[in-house]
Design a protein around this nucleic acid. Structure first.
Length: 396
DNA sequence: ATGTCC
């Protein structure tokens, strides 16, 4: 274990009370947490029924609710989970003979193109579907989506805990496929149906919401498996079950309250892949968060800049070429230039600091890093302005 | 985040 991640005395998290609810922030003073995000935490804490808000070190402002927080309440608020119900990160083993980024990038399948049950009936990826497709929802099946979603071929880098890594079947130099994606249009439809009637108010029939929500959670996990199978077949590897698959956007009933996770992964004795950026390593950690942290850990590096700021500042600071070929030597497949700037590594916090905060607060222990080889965001069509416009209008 | 308000 490196000095940086050695377990020292646990740092006391900073806790404040908002009426009956408490807000605890698991970040060191050295970590930059936007005041807007903290204000959102306190707004959430003031909601009816709220008991405790735990803010992770990747906390940043979201639409109405903060991202990177686990929020416990006696009342179920669908907007606290947001539209991407079931979003999560899965890690799959990938056995390839050679791993030349250029060659592999060229062989990635088009993950903007959905698998069609009829047209693509003979696609071998369907083998991962064991039962029914949740909610019978086939639109967008097998697609990655946009925003911070990605599919990444990576190599195990630094191994901090060889024993733990070995139990996962992993060793230095092994290849893995990381899939970060959610429930696409399904979760969005579920939230929209609620907000159209109740806005940011609670679910009047939690059971009815949870039934649809659970479908979206299952759909997201199935979709990650489908994409992993699509990529495995395209690269000439054998599809495999995920080593870890944790959902960071969902609501669960825990200790008799609704625990809303928004960009906060389950941290109760589970292994979690905490995503870095498209140009820095990610961290596989053993999570052991307790009640103060609402049994949660961070889900990624966390945005440092809004998308608008990242686009404006990125255009002045980076060339497209340096964003497509990163400092760690990986390639980023992304035919959408705007998305490339929005997702630039400099638009995110340093993953090392986020991990250090988790370690210092005794929420997680690093197992290994994954170093990107190829990150797939959206098809590279030899991007031209005309094509970007056409793609945006969905006329490919 | 999202078949996104074109």
């Amino acid at each position: 274990m490196s000095q940086q991640h050695s377990r020292q005395e646990s740092l006391p998290p900073s806790t404040t009370a908002v009426g009956p609810a408490t807000v605890t922030v698991f970040a060191s003073p050295a970590s930059w947490i936007e005041s807007d995000a903290l204000a959102q935490c306190h707004q959430v804490a003031a909601l009816d029924g709220m008991t405790h808000v735990a803010a992770m070190p990747d906390l940043h402002p979201g639409k109405g609710a903060p991202i990177g927080a686990a929020m416990a309440s006696t009342v179920l608020y669908p907007f606290l989970v947001g539209s991407d119900i079931g979003c999560g990160i899965a890690v799959f083993p990938m056995k390839l003979k050679r791993a030349v980024p250029e060659k592999l990038a060229a062989r990635f399948p088009d993950l903007d193109r959905a698998l069609d049950p009829e047209r693509d009936a003979d696609d071998p990826a369907w083998a991962v579907v064991k039962g029914d497709i949740p909610a019978g929802h086939v639109e967008g099946l097998g697609t990655v989506g946009r925003g911070n979603h990605f599919v990444e071929l990576a190599r195990i880098g630094t191994v901090f805990d060889p024993g733990h890594a070995s139990r996962l079947g992993l060793a230095d130099g092994d290849l893995v496929l990381i899939v970060h994606s959610g429930s696409r249009g399904l979760g969005e439809r579920i939230l929209r149906a609620h907000t159209a009637v109740h806005g940011a108010g609670p679910a009047p029939d939690p059971g009815a919401y949870l039934a649809m929500h659970d479908d979206a959670v299952r759909w997201g996990s199935l979709n990650r498996r489908l994409m992993a199978a699509r990529v495995a077949h395209a690269l000439g590897a054998e599809p495999a079950e995920p080593l870890v698959d944790q959902c960071h956007n969902l609501v669960e009933i825990r200790d008799g309250v609704y625990l809303h996770r928004k960009g906060a992964a389950p941290g109760d004795g589970r292994d979690v892949l905490i995503a870095g950026t498209r140009g820095t390593p990610s961290y596989l950690v053993a999570a052991h968060a307790g009640p103060d942290a609402n049994h949660s850990v961070a889900h990624g590096a966390g945005r440092k800049m809004s998308r608008a700021d990242a686009l404006r500042r990125g255009r002045a600071k980076h060339t497209v070429e340096e964003l497509r070929r990163t400092p760690v030597g990986s390639l980023v497949v992304c035919g959408d230039r705007q998305l490339l700037f929005e997702e630039a590594p400099t638009a995110y916090k340093r993953i090392e600091q986020v991990i250090a905060d988790l370690v210092d607060h005794d929420l997680a222990t690093p197992v290994a890093t994954t170093v990107p080889l190829v990150t797939y965001k959206t098809p590279d069509l030899g991007s031209t302005p005309q094509r970007d416009q056409r793609r945006k209008r969905g006329r490919r």
